[in-house]
């Protein structure tokens, strides 16, 4: 087992940042932590990186406790904080050389591990890190986190604010690194990146909502999910669908609406009402929920459970 998170609690003053976080990551797994800003992802990652002490619970990294054996932990992890944390006034190669020396190794020694990543930024190796574009900064930070051949790579929101192309490239690189036998724990606010992970934990307001394998389609839920498309654009239909009697939730979802009926019977009734809307391009069909649908469903569930006090985001 690479990583054991065992019932971790952490609060800052009155704010409960993490409550009862509990999961395990296998050797060589690519594990994703998915949730919005403020969900507690960074706090959890800092605990894993031995930078914060949990109020309760344990975090074990390859057999080492991140609190008691922090020195050992720091030798075997590669950590990339959420904020770009390299020296802006040093060049690309100087940054890399510095981190190599900090970990008592050299760039040459582990070059094969980072070559895939580093070759993409090597043409700019004399440029100051502060002058790199967002995507290149991420690649440099990843190279620096990898240079000592860590056993576990901890990446806190490496793709936030990065464009779709760079994000795709970044995930491709992570897959290759995983192929070298390195365990990777990564967080992201982008739900569509879940499919790149072996398993994901959905996290919201300091709590894990669910841990799942994104490659296994989920169905058999009590309610089903439907998509609605139209050549006329779906936004015009949003309020109409929501106001229908059998509708539980309806949300924009790219060029579709994703609609959760209250029950299967309601789905049929809704379909028949829509037929009367006189839009031949209207397509209504059952679909399998994506991670984002799951996340939204779980959020709705949570807020319904907490709706007694009337506060909802």
């Amino acid at each position: 087992m690479s990583l054991i998170i065992d019932h971790i609690d952490k609060s800052f003053d009155a704010v409960q940042a993490l409550s009862r976080i509990d999961f395990e990551v296998q050797d060589g797994e690519l594990f994703g932590l998915i949730g919005p800003d403020g969900a507690g992802k960074s706090t959890l990652f800092r605990i894993m990186a031995s930078l914060l002490v949990p109020d309760a619970g344990r975090c074990i990294m390859h057999g080492y406790d991140v609190v008691d054996d922090y020195r050992e932990v720091r030798k075997i992890i590669g950590y990339m904080p959420g904020r770009f944390s390299l020296y802006m006034d040093l060049s690309v190669e100087e940054n890399l050389a510095f981190y190599a020396r900090v970990f008592g190794t050299s760039v040459e020694e582990n070059y094969d591990l980072i070559s895939d990543v580093y070759e993409q930024i090597a043409p700019f190796k004399r440029r100051l890190a502060g002058k790199l574009s967002g995507g290149m900064k991420q690649k440099l930070a990843l190279s620096c986190a990898l240079i000592h051949r860590p056993r576990v790579l901890i990446l806190d929101e490496p793709t936030t604010g990065v464009d779709a192309v760079s994000r795709r490239e970044f995930w491709d690189m992570l897959k290759k690194i995983q192929g070298q036998g390195i365990t990777i724990v990564v967080s992201t606010p982008y739900m569509d990146e879940a499919e790149m992970c072996d398993r994901v934990a959905l996290i919201q307001k300091g709590r894990v909502l669910e841990i799942s394998d994104p490659s296994i389609p989920r169905d058999g839920d009590d309610t089903q999910l439907f998509s609605l498309r139209s050549n006329r654009g779906v936004y015009a239909y949003l309020e109409r669908v929501r106001s229908m009697e059998g509708c539980k939730h309806a949300w924009l979802f790219g060029d579709q609406l994703h609609v959760t009926p209250k029950s299967k019977d309601n789905a049929e009734k809704m379909k028949s009402v829509m037929d009367s809307w006189d839009d031949p391009s209207l397509q209504w069909k059952p679909i399998l929920p994506s991670i984002e649908d799951r996340f939204m469903g779980l959020m709705e569930q949570e807020s319904e459970e907490h709706s007694t006090n009337g506060e909802r985001i």
Partner: peptide, 20 residues
């Protein structure tokens, strides 16, 4: 300019409804 960075999926959609 990137108004919805980092927010949860429901808020993101509510935000777009506000834009509409």
């Amino acid at each position: 300019d990137e108004p919805t960075g980092g927010v949860d999926p429901i808020t993101r959609r509510q935000f777009w409804e506000m834009i509409h």
